[in-house]
Structures are given as structure tokens and as C-alpha cells.
């Protein structure tokens, strides 16, 4: 087996304790959920015998660790419990909405990567110049402005005032523009900053100086020599930033009435529908962990110089 395969397998194995840790964390938190879960299942006025029976049926009379074992066992079957409100299995509720979130997140990611890299490059053309300062101010603003507020402003401007895009709902391509823009802002701002500093760093290296000395134009050097090398940190950032898409979708989807995981979580919060909330949190975390593995792996493909040994 070559080194890279070993690295991929190692990286996957390293994720196992983390996932177990996350499951324990969520399980402990569900134990703190106010009120008796049985009451919410059979109703407050149910007969004491029925309550006892349900308690037994769900293993709620067992000790903590046995309950945890049951919990893990049902998770392994893909069972995340049932919604208090709709009575549907949480896993199928998530499965139904995940494609929508994925669609939104991917669109946002494309927007963020394109605009972020473009902004980063524009600002490097003349470091310290007007464009540079403007781009960097935009990027600090992008990090500082709350996602949910930015979404509302976009609705006010582009939907209410200009009437270009629908304010909320799902449908044709015009529906995805505003929520994707909202979701992309933060990430785009980060990418712009990282692109700028990493291009500046690469520009100072010897092979760039050599390329320039050979007589290649600045643009050609930027496009051919610098871009490839400068994008490595950007790739890592995209991975780290996946969390911001998951966080952001909770805040964005409700504003735009986008029927995804984020909206599901928010409805769960409003109805205090604990299985749904914990299910989405767990699902989001696991997605995040796997996405990070993917990024680490692609990082090792992009940059063969990195060592496969983790410290």
C-alpha cells in the first residue's frame, strides 16, 4: 500500500473516537431535556400503568449506561427517534430535507469560492491600493455582519424594492439566488482574506522571482505559477468553513422559507421537539467530520509535499 492510502485509512480511523465523543455529548445533553420524555409521548394524563409500560418499552427504567447502549444501537440502525410533533421518524425527516440543504450549500460554496478568490486576487494586483483596501474592508464586513440580518436586507432590497427575486419559498433558479448569496457571504470573506495573504506569500518565493526574471509578464506569472500554489491554503479553508454552511443554514433557511435541515432544526427549537433538534445537531456534526476527512484527503492530493504523518 502506498503512503497516501495509509494516510486516508488513518485519517478515517482517527475520526471514530471523535464521532463517539460527539454521540456521548448529544446523549448526555438529551438526559438534561426538561420534562419526562414519557409524558410527551403518552400525554400528561395517562394512566400510571401505561406510563410504566412505555418506560419499560423504551428502556427508560434501565441504568444510564444501558440506556446509552440502546441509544447507540438504535443510532447504528439509523433510528434517531420520533418527532414529538409529527410522529415521523427523525431520520426520514432529515433524509427528505437534506438534498435541499445540500443544493443550497453547494450553490453558496461555488459563489463563495469564485467571489472570494476573485476578491483576493484583485486586492493583490496593487497591495495597499484603493482596490485592495476596498476588498479587504468588504471582507471584514462580510465576517462581521450577521448572516440572518444580511438575508433580511437582501430581501428588502432585491425583493421588496427592486422585485428581482422572490422573497421566500422554493422553486426555479431565481429562488436560490438570495439564500445562496446570504450563505456565501461569510465564507467568501474568509476566502478573500486567505487568498490575499497566501498569494502575497507565494509572490515572495524564489520560483516566482525567477519566472519574472525570465521575462514573463506579471499577469502570466500570477495565473500560471502563483495561482496553483496559493490555492492550497484556500482548499483547507473551504473544509474548515463547511461548519459555517451548516451553522448558516440554520439561520438562513428560516428567513427564506427554504425547506432544509436548518429549517427543520429551527422548527424543532420553536416546538421544543427535542428528538428533531438532537437529530439535526448529530447529523450536522457527523457530516462536518466526514467533510473534513474529505478535505484532508484532497489536501494531500493537491499538495504532495505534505507529510502523511500526523503529529
Amino acid at each position: 500500500m502506498n503512503k497516501q492510502k495509509v494516510f486516508v485509512i488513518k485519517r478515517c480511523l482517527l475520526a471514530i473516537p471523535t464521532i463517539i465523543g460527539v454521540v456521548v455529548l448529544i446523549f448526555v445533553l438529551t438526559r438534561f431535556v426538561p420534562g419526562d420524555p414519557v409524558n410527551s409521548f403518552v400525554g400528561r394524563r395517562a394512566d400510571a400503568r401505561i406510563i410504566e409500560k412505555v418506560r419499560e418499552e423504551f428502556g427508560l427504567d434501565k441504568p444510564f449506561f444501558v440506556q446509552f447502549f440502546y441509544y447507540v444501537k438504535s443510532l447504528a440502525r439509523g433510528d434517531m427517534g420520533y418527532s414529538y410533533v409529527s410522529g415521523q421518524p427523525v431520520s426520514s425527516m432529515i433524509a427528505k430535507r437534506f438534498p435541499n440543504t445540500l443544493k443550497l450549500a453547494c450553490t453558496a460554496m461555488v459563489l463563495a469560492v469564485l467571489s472570494g478568490i476573485a476578491m483576493g486576487f484583485l486586492s493583490v494586483l496593487k497591495p495597499g491600493g484603493f482596490i485592495d483596501r476596498a476588498c479587504m474592508f468588504l471582507s471584514v464586513s462580510g465576517i462581521s455582519i450577521p448572516v440572518f440580518w444580511f438575508g433580511l436586507i437582501l430581501i428588502i432590497v432585491f425583493s421588496n424594492m427592486l422585485g428581482w427575486f422572490p422573497a421566500s419559498g422554493m422553486g426555479g433558479p431565481s429562488y436560490i439566488i438570495l439564500p445562496a448569496l446570504t450563505l456565501a457571504t461569510r465564507s467568501s470573506a474568509y476566502i478573500a482574506r486567505i487568498t490575499r495573504s497566501s498569494v502575497l506569500e507565494v509572490l515572495g518565493e524564489n520560483f516566482v522571482v525567477t519566472a519574472r526574471a525570465k521575462g514573463l509578464s506579471r499577469t502570466k506569472v500570477l495565473m500560471k505559477h502563483v495561482l496553483k500554489n496559493a490555492l492550497i491554503p484556500v482548499v483547507t479553508l473551504i473544509g474548515i468553513d463547511l461548519g459555517s454552511y451548516l451553522n448558516g443554514s440554520v439561520l438562513t433557511e428560516s428567513i427564506f422559507g427554504w425547506n432544509g435541515i436548518g429549517n427543520l432544526a429551527l422548527n424543532g427549537i420553536m416546538n421544543r421537539d427535542y428528538p428533531v433538534i438532537m437529530g439535526t445537531v448529530l447529523f450536522g456534526s457527523v457530516i462536518f467530520i466526514f467533510a473534513n476527512i474529505l478535505v484532508d484527503v484532497s489536501y494531500s492530493i493537491f499538495n504532495p509535499r505534505i507529510s502523511y504523518e500526523r503529529k
Binding site: V22, T30, Y274
Partner: peptide, 19 residues
């Protein structure tokens, strides 16, 4: 590692919602 591998806002939601 665990804390950083959970999206922050989701974890905050899970905590605030139960207390």
C-alpha cells in the same frame, strides 16, 4: 478535537435548548 469537530452554533443550540 470533539468541540472543534461540531459546528459551533449547532452545539450551542443543543446546550441552550435543554437548559
Amino acid at each position: 478535537d470533539i468541540t472543534l469537530s461540531v459546528p459551533g452554533l449547532l452545539l450551542a443550540i443543543a446546550i441552550t435548548v435543554v437548559f
